[in-house]
Design a protein around this nucleic acid. Structure first.
Lengths: 252, 252
DNA sequence: CCGGCGGAGGTTGCATGCAATCTCTTGACT
DNA sequence: AGTCAAGAGATTGCATGCAACCTCCGCCGG
């Protein structure tokens, strides 16, 4: 992520506010902050080393992105993710990512060399005796980002990264079975081929399959483990505040 | 617009901040503030009657939505809209709105009575000897909003209203020819029928046609008049004769 | 035992003050 | 005349203080 939003509407504020925003966002996305947890302005300000003002701006920004829940005069808490949220987000991603991929195939603006290199690195990291899943995740994000940027529709990239982000995806690959992981890699290779062929239909189809496959993995995992695993609560301290019923919602 | 965002992530802040946000947003969307215009915190604060702090928060929010351009230590200015922006936004709307409409047809959660009533009102307002285009615009927005809300995907509505808004659409109907306006009304009636039939393909198709038709009108107008008209600069004059250029819009 | 009430503690909401940064003008120098 | 530089003015960035509000606990009355 550059210091400026892709389209250049530059929602980055001053240094302190921007720093606070990234810190808090990173903590939420990484699962360091569990769903439902209260984010106190004072505490965050002290831990980040700035005053409350930039922290407030960061929290507002995160609220606009839907990562935190704002409640007037009460504070903000980390958003909790239900099965319904997951379905909403993947439903939209399965629409937008293929669209971006289709556009990228028609513009031919994608850097195929870079994409190929990422895939190689990714496979290397995934197939090692001790797979480096964090590295895989990072490369995967970059891969998707590069394609969506190549679509030429800057708002599309903004939408996906700002409004359709879920903490879970950070640990997505730790939930993939070996075969699912291999299929994901195969999808990536096929995507590059489709882009090279400049075949919009092909590219779109592969990407749609790719997203749906990921969706399936998440759904299965979510069903088994419940929301608390998804929000990172179960990966936290042994004793955490009462889970606040995050309620498994009947799928949409 | 309720005082709470549809999904309930409640990005509404305190009274002053929320009020400032709505004031400024309204000024931008209505075209009262022209593209490129600088928005000074101090001036806005005084005109709204609050201090700079809530104004700053409002501006940050608007920056996240892409309505204003933030530049560090320099200030914010109203976003300028190019043909490319228009295409990006309508490209995404032509994807998301039909999707929402499809979902609404499957959930059957749409209030068909209300939609029908809106259509009647809309036609009445449009067919009067002196068409009330502001009223038509308002009803049209409500109509689309209701459908997208009925999709059951709350994020979808958020995305469209928060990230895919353009000042132009406020005056969209003043740019419609009589025949285009009639077609738009016909689309609306057909949409209700498709929803009543609970036919996802039909509903999706009609909505896609509907958005593409609007896109075409905007593109044509934009080409002729240039961006400065789109940002509201040229609409300041007291007398606004409905252009009524008899443009036979090429069907999608 | 249960429900309503009031005060204390804690947290956010907003206003204000000051420092940092940018812009624009003025002036001197080449 | 053109270019560069320095200073004044203006504007944002951030910190802090105080008021408003919410929550929670203890207390009283039924």
């Amino acid at each position: 992520m550059g210091n400026v939003s892709p389209r250049g509407h530059a929602s980055d504020a001053g240094q302190a506010a921007e720093h606070a925003y990234r810190c808090i966002r990173e903590q939420i996305l990484s699962g360091e902050r569990s769903g439902g947890e209260w984010l106190r302005e004072d505490g965050l300000a002290e831990s980040i080393g700035v005053s409350r003002t930039p922290v407030r701006e960061a929290l507002r920004h995160l609220a606009a992105e839907g990562l935190v829940l704002y409640q007037r005069n009460r504070g903000v808490q980390v958003q909790t993710w239900t099965m319904s949220d997951l379905n909403e987000i993947y439903g939209l991603r399965s629409l937008l990512e293929p669209y971006g991929c289709r556009l990228a195939a028609t513009t031919g603006r994608a850097d195929l060399e870079a994409l190929s290199a990422m895939n190689s690195d990714m496979e290397h990291a995934a197939n090692a005796t001790q797979p480096d899943l964090d590295r895989v995740t990072e490369l995967n994000n970059d891969f998707h980002r590069l394609i969506i940027d190549a679509s030429g529709n800057a708002r599309l990239g903004d939408l996906v990264t700002s409004n359709l982000q879920v903490p879970l995806v950070r640990h997505t690959f730790s939930r993939y079975s070996r075969s699912s992981l291999q299929r994901s890699m195969a999808h990536h290779r096929e995507l590059v081929d489709a882009l090279r062929a400049e075949d919009p239909d092909w590219a779109e189809s592969v990407m749609r399959s790719h997203v749906h496959a990921a969706w399936s993995v998440m759904r299965r995992y979510f069903d088994k483990s419940g929301p608390e695993a998804a929000t990172g609560q179960s990966l936290e301290s042994p004793n955490q505040p009462p889970p606040e019923e995050a309620a498994a919602v009947p799928g949409s």
